[in-house]
Design a protein around this nucleic acid. Sequence first.
DNA 1: AGGATTTTTTGAACAGAGAAACCAGACGTC
DNA 2: GACGTCTGGTTTCTCTGTTCAAAAAATCCT
Lengths: 339, 339
Amino acid sequence: MDRPVTALDVAQKAGVSRSAVSRVFTPGASVSKRTAEKVRCAADALGYRPNVLARSLITGRSRIIGLVVAYLENQFYPEAIERLSRHLQERGYHVLVFMASNSGEEADEVMEELLDYQVDGIIAASVGMSNDLTRRCEAAGIPIVLFNRAQDDDRLSSVTSDNYHGGRKLAEFLVAGGHKRVAHIAGWEGASTQRDREAGFVAGLAAAGQTLAARGVSDFDFERAKTIAREMFSSDTYPDAVFCANDHMAFAVMDVLRFELGLRVPDDVSVVGYDDVTLAAWPSYDLTTVRQPAGQMARATVDILMDRLADPETKPRRVALDGPLILRRSARIPEGWTT
Amino acid sequence: MDRPVTALDVAQKAGVSRSAVSRVFTPGASVSKRTAEKVRCAADALGYRPNVLARSLITGRSRIIGLVVAYLENQFYPEAIERLSRHLQERGYHVLVFMASNSGEEADEVMEELLDYQVDGIIAASVGMSNDLTRRCEAAGIPIVLFNRAQDDDRLSSVTSDNYHGGRKLAEFLVAGGHKRVAHIAGWEGASTQRDREAGFVAGLAAAGQTLAARGVSDFDFERAKTIAREMFSSDTYPDAVFCANDHMAFAVMDVLRFELGLRVPDDVSVVGYDDVTLAAWPSYDLTTVRQPAGQMARATVDILMDRLADPETKPRRVALDGPLILRRSARIPEGWTT
DNA sequence: AGGATTTTTTGAACAGAGAAACCAGACGTC
DNA sequence: GACGTCTGGTTTCTCTGTTCAAAAAATCCT
């Protein structure tokens, strides 16, 4: 009864051919002012808007970007997604969400679906990708950008912060603060971010002749981070500082230290994290951390994607943005320390 | 050079017609075992998967659900989105994200884009919608569900918690706790959630012969909530309890009370919120609040949408799920109080 | 075996647009 | 006035699948 209005309806009403209508809605096509006027008028009257899906069938571009993401619990991701989505929206693209667990096979399944939708590009946030999959996307001409993860394969674009240097800065800061028993709570060891942060951190310690006093692996899980903190800090010679691989886990650890073990932060233990999510700045945590410049990272991700879409020959880029150390009060500040 | 593989390629390789291939991938179509086998084999060999977009052109169903959302800063939304997205994914749908500001005209603009993508349904999370728009979607046969907002128009489906009762429970709880000067920090007054929560709260106070001792409006903004808290609590006769229209603002208020004004929570001031986001349970805040059952809300939203898609004649539903009062320690607990 | 019935298969039409090829006038030039 | 060149419009083809009427094949029944 109320069939959607198509270009043909508009054409008839405006008394022109259907392709004239098409050209009016294609920027850069040559149309006389008069026709454009007539068409636009008829279109408005009928409430016509071109069908993006039909268009994408012929142009081969859907203006859809697939976003693969594993979980939104860590505040860093919603913040990033909001930015990514807004940037893409400004350029006429939209984000199609695919939730994936971290398990490898499910990632594959998700990838297949992604391709079914003919997405123009893929942003993989915090998800590992099998090389095989990557290759298939490249073969299909679909650019991929890893967000907050890098991979050895340098045919893959990625955007991260400079995790190695970030980790190193934290180590230098803790060492300068006179800490002697420095621990690390790792996230998921399969993640490049984890490896780089830890590598930088350990290197920083090593430069001062120190090594990790303790180490636990939480897979970025909040509850597991708590369990590890309980064990790590129940011995008499507990660490005097701990670097948590992201802010999210640092909060968990601070909660355990303060509310379960009755330790003072930073007097008894200094805690540092990584990300600088919004919550890190709130006075309840006031977390010393390395900022991942989410805004710049989102911008860079979108730029890479757009460049690749404009010219498929564009070389893949691997961006590692510098992130500043944000001094707050969850960790002792060395005297006379200047950023 | 590496043109994507289409149904025709598969058909040729399998030695059947293109429609045979189509039927193999359409559940419930009549195909002989032998052909199905041949086709599936050829499809696997070539790595063929049907193009969802092309399919949606003829079937009129895109298996895309548009999600309109204003901001992700309030943790409630990422939590909800993750659930919505996973449920939809289970049923073979995916979420296309549209970020909208709260301004009315932009919502319209976004709506237009939404329709361009031929979405099968729309979830509007925390966004108001002009009646005109709503009508157009209904006319186009696209079901809409408001998530965490309701609207007077009862041709519109909506899913919320029972905000009125939630507000009322909070008032009764605070009254029972012996509070005498109860304040409210409102979110955005255009939001039904805000109005209902406040109405219930005020009614609860009234039942005990009390009225609001103070009131401020923050538009759900974190910083504005802080400003309001500073003013509200700098007088000598500051309120002894405050109900913040959501948890997000309650955190802001608690931070100001504790860290700027040096007030103790709950000894000097009881603070209660609404949502029960994850952070509310963390010991740093330990916020007494009304739980919005995000899981059930997401489930209900998806159910309504699916029912409407299965049978367009389904009546719109307005679901208001009951949310329990979650007792924690940001508010004084009345003696002998049982939930 | 021959005809009736059922099941499969196929070719053509269709969905809603963009793009290339093509064509009708307007204009300029010699 | 014939020819070439623009400009703006139209025709036709295309994209990738689904669907339907009709044809073909398989099955059943006497």
